[in-house]
Design a protein around this nucleic acid. Structure first.
Lengths: 161, 161
DNA sequence: CACAATCGACAACCCCATTGTCTATTAAGG
DNA sequence: CCTTAATAGACAATGGGGTTGTCGATTGTG
């Protein structure tokens, strides 16, 4: 393909920083899930990872809904799916008879551990190519620029609107 | 909150690189859309930006669907929405009577230009805080690590599964 | 000991994306 | 040419996933 007569307006220099961050993120996540798929977790999606992070050490369906930015009913549906695949379980809350605590099963913890390991491996691979110094500089810089922002888990709603 | 007796398994060092990239991306995108909202484009969502990128200099609904990783019907719906808000228009394809070309209106180009400008400004702000050298190093590193990946626009389907 | 608030479950609804089908148009091959 | 396959976009029917609304049970508050 050649040059088009009617070209789009050129983006100014430096406006592709968000895209670069997104591409980097996607590259890592894709590699992580490729590894997970090989390890028998083919159905595990990036969104599940976020849900796992939101679950943390255990939450109620209502709280999970709040963290994910969806209704508690929607969170319940998500949980059902993860429960069916054996990643999470619901146990009675000893301190509140209304609540059921959602927490990772050993299989869930296993996926998470594997994911963490792959991420660390990928980080090492990046460091290998970029040099440990540059790698650390990137991390430090990103930490600095995002220090005032809290980690939010409502990715789909946030992005899709 | 204190230390919980049952703590979650600790993520290994270096496994938070994806999260850092995501946080950085989100920080930038949030700031961009905050500015756009003030400029009268409150309904403009991150997903719309991706759609704009996928539209490029003009595409058919079918092609847009392929780029976004959704059916042409779904792409058509998205287009209707953007059309209603005056961001895109459909014009007949002079070379193919079946096709209608979707392209940005002047209003659409305006939002895009503004978004580009805000992104460049934010990049400058980052450079101010990190130093131009570090900023450039990050960009260069990300470019290097994502050079072999093509830019894909199927974000929602990719992430949500 | 009332009373408001919250938890999870159930039901009804809605939006959006999907598949399937249709006509019009284009491209390819004999 | 003329037939046949492929593609564009419109329309219809379906389904998944989200939403609101309601309910009984339980908790916390004054």
């Amino acid at each position: 393909m050649g040059l088009s007569i009617v070209s789009s307006t050129l983006p100014p220099r430096g406006s592709d920083l968000p895209l670069l961050l997104l591409l980097g993120f996607r590259a890592l996540i894709d590699d992580v899930h490729a590894e997970l798929a090989e390890a028998g977790h083919a159905g595990f999606r990036p969104l599940h990872g976020v849900t796992f992070k939101a679950i943390g050490d255990g939450v109620t369906a209502s709280e999970l809904g709040r963290r994910l930015g969806v209704s508690k009913q929607a969170a319940g549906k998500t949980i059902e799916g993860l429960e069916r695949e054996g990643y999470v379980e619901r146990v009675a809350d000893p301190e509140d008879a209304r609540s059921k605590i959602i927490r990772l099963t050993s299989r869930g913890v296993d996926v998470q551990q594997q994911a963490f390991k792959v991420m660390a491996d990928l980080r090492a691979r990046w460091a290998e190519r970029l040099g440990e110094e540059r790698m650390a500089a990137i991390e430090e810089a990103l930490r600095e620029m995002t220090a005032d922002r809290e980690t939010r888990f409502d990715i789909p709603g946030w992005f899709n609107g």
